[in-house]
Design a protein around this nucleic acid. Structure first.
Lengths: 222, 222, 222, 222
DNA sequence: TATGAATGAGTGTTCATTCAT
DNA sequence: AATGAATGAACACTCATTCAT
């Protein structure tokens, strides 16, 4: 351990989160362990500061081990974002419970997106990071998951149009992208202005989001 | 030797853009000169590749000089974004010409935002870069300019509510932020999916933006 | 993310080349199987990019297995070069057909060397790689094969001296080394300046080699 | 200095070779200092093991400093090889003293090449390294120097043809390349088989080289 | 006021080799 | 005999920031 730098920023400790016993795990276990660790690191420090070094320091494993399972840092992040996206999809699904009717169903989806952003702001950042044009990954899981989300929203729109709750002249393809893009934008705005909005007592995040949702739903309603 | 990056170098030449005669400028002039240079660099290469080194290479001045006028790279970028924001504000203003009536005035603002993004994609990137929570700057100019934009939009909303074009129950404060956040989100989405949208022949940027604007305006209209 | 290498990946498939049925081979078979695989990899990608990982990926065997049979990567390469050298020896042999007479027989040997280099440039690279002083191997096969080549050339020289085609005062021992070294040098030069020579229309590889052979043969002729 | 690895291989100490006083040198001085250091490292350990890390460890300077003066490792090596080539050129020049006549002048050039290889075997390796097709450098000095050498040899050949010492039908362009390539090959062979030749008492380097030169000169003589 | 040489902790990535099972 | 997970030192290259002159 001659190789220890004076690390100022974050001291994360490998605790009960991890698979116990760190030597010679099965492929699947190790891969999952690394993804979990990456997830934790990401959640703690954010994408912009996420490094492979932090991951291995956290796990106490060698660098080569990470690169055995993931071709690149971005591939690892892609895997984490699969988790993020599937959680988001779950938020979407849960939002659509039977008792909710009419345009409230659409409202519920946007709300779910907001809740997700509140619960996991770092995931929002991650999703933005991955949407950068430079980002490229061979991780097909990510692509698949991404399409699943889009499809879910698209089908929701189609259904609600059929049900007469949303305007007939909305193109579900475009509209789903519009919902995604605008919602992510508002999310990011909230994240960025977090402190700003907290300080100015009169404006609240909740209120802002509700305004956004109001406008969107009103704009899409039949 | 496998380790060769694609060294993309941009050879920018300091020409008539700059304050002529680079020696012995007044403080204010020097500061402006640096901002201008930073602006040019940014416009040419984008935030992600923007470095102080490029700026000084372009100007032919010393590094210390930059740090004399700006506390950090981010401070300098904040100053550049003042320019970006004031241009955007101008787009907004120009969009509000007399002949446009009713909700088309609101539509025009969102359209202006899109046009701006088309014309200066690098500025959009910059604005996003600055909206990351990590970003902090003492640059008051930036804050001021930011508020000017917000105010402009806010006043627009207030006015259109008065005119009976927008719904009375819209809170101009929140609504202006909603417009900003969602619009930027769609912009970013467009940037990220640029290639994707180009390839899939059936989806077009223009169409996507129009869908977005349609929904927003419909959602805000009286 | 700026740090993306050009990941050139070669997808080689283990087909009919290999010993069929990969499990439970005899020691000798396994060893040969690995050498064959290494040979194929080398031929496809060259020494500089040759890795044990590629070999085992190709064969679908474990890393430990390779290290059971070969003490090091260089030992394995040495074994591959045995094959290369024996092919070269074959080129030499074939060059000496009955109808060729006089100094043309010597010329034919140097020509064969050139042809070999043209046909298997990767082998030339390998031979160079192995001639670096750092390279050390216990592989006796390599030494043996190396001597066989030297002996062949040496005997050729002895014979041609007897036949009165080459100068009597040439020491076959030294001369064979001279032929080997100089020829390999010219080969390497050709490889290095490949593009250069192609572009400069007036200089051709063929011409260069012929000049070399001319000088050598004239210098050795009786 | 928390960052010190257990370094097994070479402990080089920065002694009287270096410019004294290591802080804040002029550009030119620092550049030269780095080249000198690189030269020393190269001479001690050879190209294959030459690293920027060794250079900075030797000089006790920061990595960034090296990259301030040289765009890449290969660029630095190119600069070292300029030195090597200019020394070789000097060997060539010195070999051509007035008292030497006839084909001995050509012989002297090849001899000079050998002497150079004896005196600086690592330079030979370096030159080979740089002749690899992968190698590319923007260092124009290297190109220039390389051409100077070629030209020197070419002019020598032209002159000796005029003088009637070399065959009229030799093309100086090709012949100079042949001399270079073959000579370098023999040099490399000597370097590689150094130990081999030392052990086998009967063969000597000197003898081998003389055989080579004999053949070449005889082959080129009028 | 301006300079610009120097810094150095990062960053992602590689790959020969080891060794417990 | 075979496995294959794990290692970790190495390496090239970056860039915001400092500070002595």
């Amino acid at each position: 351990m001659l190789y220890k730098k004076n690390r100022i920023r974050f001291a994360l400790t490998n605790s009960h989160f991890m698979v116990s016993g760190t030597k010679h795990l099965s492929s699947a276990q190790r891969e999952q362990q690394i993804i979990n660790a990456a997830d934790i690191i990401l959640t703690q420090v954010g994408v912009q500061v996420f490094t492979i070094d932090r991951v291995i320091e956290f796990l106490g494993i060698a660098k080569g081990t990470v690169y055995k399972y993931f071709d690149s840092k971005d591939d690892l992040l892609a895997e984490v974002s699969v988790k993020a996206l599937s959680m988001l999809l779950n938020y979407f699904r849960l939002s659509q419970n039977e008792s909710v009717r009419g345009t409230d169903r659409t409202r519920a989806i946007l709300s779910a997106c907001y809740s997700f952003g509140q619960d996991y702001p770092q995931y929002i950042e991650l999703l933005f990071y991955m949407e950068r044009p430079e980002f490229s990954t061979g991780a097909t899981n990510y692509i698949t998951m991404s399409e699943k989300i889009t499809d879910f929203v698209k089908r929701h729109i189609e259904l609600e149009i059929e049900n007469g709750n949303l305007r007939k002249n909305l193109d579900p393809n475009y509209t789903s992208h519009v919902m995604w893009g605008s919602c992510m934008g508002v999310m990011q705005f909230l994240d960025a202005k977090k402190n700003f909005l907290e300080n100015v007592g009169t404006l609240t995040q909740k209120q802002l989001v509700e305004t956004y949702i109001d406008i969107m739903v009103a704009g899409m309603a039949a």
